[in-house]
């Protein structure tokens, strides 16, 4: 007879064995492969460290100038340049310059990694319905699973430090760029694709002369979202030893320092807004052909 109040659970011992078995299997895997995997990520670590040092060793006025030039090149908007400079100056004046540079370095490298991996994946998804069917749920998992859950295996595998932090950020931040690359390519006008076919374009030529250029606005929206999500992860990354604004926020939480928390939080917001506005304006400028419409 079934007891309807009692769920037919797996027995406690079986469950314990299952958990133990999986855990120890993963630990064995870590012992066997940990060094190899760490070695694999070593170039990434070196690059991140180099980039952090570069940002921190650059004198602040030079850094402000570089950022001002980049903002101008991206957005062609003076108000945005002024806004970026004022907020950076405030961040520096309130003693957060160095941490901001750490965070900037992490976000830049994470975004770069996401773009380098994400765009090819998006293209692959757009080319094959099967790949799309397989990758979509994986992206769903990456976006919704609580970050702490995958911090455990990452920490076991790679310990505490910059690279595990970077990986954790990328896992959370990569889905938008993959999704929107896929979507952008799939939304390209069928008539235009047919014309490319009629002129004998190979799949490769079609991708680079038609699909990618026309998908660019969507891809840019994806990159923009990726940057925003990477910034949202800096506090979580701080949990496994990434320096920067996130770590300060964490300290503030642990010690109930309201002002410290808000100051560093607002610095993150400032970076986010600068990145967001610049990348949006840049994405719009790429679309200059859609601006003037015949009346």
């Amino acid at each position: 007879m079934w007891d309807w109040n009692e769920f037919p659970e797996i027995s406690r011992t079986d469950l314990r064995d299952l958990k133990k078995g999986l855990d120890s299997a993963f630990k064995d895997f870590t012992r066997a492969w940990g060094d190899t995997i760490e070695g694999f990520f070593n170039p990434l670590l070196k690059f991140l460290v180099w980039f952090e040092k570069l940002l921190i060793s650059t004198p602040w006025p030079v850094m402000m100038l570089i950022i001002a030039v980049l903002v101008w090149l991206g957005s062609r908007s003076w108000p945005l340049v002024v806004g970026a400079l004022v907020s950076l100056w405030l961040v520096g004046y309130l003693g957060m310059w160095e941490n901001t540079m750490y965070t900037l370095a992490l976000i830049s490298v994470a975004t770069l990694v996401c773009i380098i991996i994400g765009i090819p994946f998006g293209i692959w998804m757009a080319k094959s319905n099967r790949v799309q069917a397989i990758v979509t749920p994986i992206l769903d998992i990456m976006q919704t699973i609580p970050a702490f859950v995958y911090l455990i295996p990452i920490m076991l595998l790679l310990g505490i430090g910059k690279v595990p932090g970077l990986i954790a950020v990328c896992i959370y931040a990569i889905p938008p760029v993959v999704r929107l690359t896929n979507l952008g390519i799939r939304l390209v006008d069928k008539d235009v694709l047919e014309a490319a076919d009629a002129f004998g374009a190979s799949p490769h030529q079609k991708l680079w002369t038609v699909q990618m250029p026309l998908a660019l606005p969507n891809i840019f929206a994806g990159i923009n979202q990726t940057i925003m999500m990477a910034l949202a992860m800096v506090v979580v990354a701080a949990l496994i030893g990434v320096r920067g604004l996130g770590l300060e926020v964490l300290k503030a939480v642990n010690n109930q320092y309201i002002t410290l928390g808000f100051m560093n939080g607002m610095a993150i917001v400032a970076i986010a807004i600068i990145f967001d506005r610049v990348s949006q304006k840049y994405g719009k400028r790429l679309q200059k052909h859609s601006e003037v419409i015949h009346g």
Binding site: D189, D191, V192, E194, A195, A196, D197, A198, F199, G200, T209, V210, P213, L214, H289, S290
Partner: peptide, 28 residues
């Protein structure tokens, strides 16, 4: 065959919207 023997004109024009007139014309 498509590259060298045929060329096509479409009802809805099917021009590449991100390319100028000259860039469209050289497409083939």
């Amino acid at each position: 065959f498509r590259r060298h023997k045929t060329a096509m004109v479409f009802q809805k024009f099917a021009l590449l919207p991100h390319r100028t007139v000259i860039e469209n014309t050289v497409y083939g």
